[in-house]
């Protein structure tokens, strides 16, 4: 089986995987980083979004071997010294989550939105950018507020 090595949340990790292993399977099953979720099998729902070399990726769309040598950040890698990242805090403060299943993907996508669009985000931009993340609970209203508030907090 092919060997893979990558840096996940600042830790060097390696393993042997079947070639067909998806990045999300490697994260969840080999590394037991179960914060990244699988909500569909057609790369539509966005529950599995992680960052690979600083860009958001649906980790069900990428083979683990393709991430060989990459820097990967998952939802578990955002909080520092026990404090939540400002985007995580914004989701809590604005009730941007209910069942929590889509939430890790939402937060990882939100960070990517900020990285590409800056800290002052209007509602239309956030809604358009969230098109690849499906939530059944919140009706998006409070997710949009959370992303805007988190983006602002990240700029402060």
């Amino acid at each position: 089986m092919p060997a893979v090595a990558m840096n996940v949340n600042g830790n060097a990790v390696s393993g042997e995987v079947e070639p067909r292993t998806l990045l999300v399977q490697f994260l969840r099953e080999s590394l037991r980083l179960t914060g990244t979720h699988v909500g569909c099998d057609t790369s539509q729902c966005g529950a599995c979004v992680v960052h690979v070399n600083g860009k958001s990726v649906k980790s069900c769309t990428m083979l683990a071997v393709m991430a060989d040598g990459c820097d990967v950040t998952t939802i578990e890698g955002l909080a520092t010294d026990g404090s939540m990242h400002p985007m995580q805090q914004a989701f809590m403060d604005n009730h941007g989550l209910q069942c929590g299943f889509c939430t890790p993907g939402m937060v990882m996508t939100a960070l990517d939105i900020v990285n590409r669009n800056g800290n002052d985000l209007n509602e239309a931009t956030v809604r358009k950018e969230l098109e690849g993340n499906i939530c059944r609970c919140t009706g998006y209203h409070n997710i949009v507020k959370s992303v805007q508030a988190g983006a602002k907090a990240m700029g402060e």
């Binding site: 914060g35 990244t36 809590m92 299943f101």
Partner: peptide
């Protein structure tokens, strides 16, 4: 603010899978 949010936000939810 919700008690349950922290675990979901830091990736420590505990779903069946």
């Amino acid at each position: 603010r919700r008690k349950e949010d922290k675990r979901f936000l830091i990736g420590k939810g505990n779903y069946t899978d």
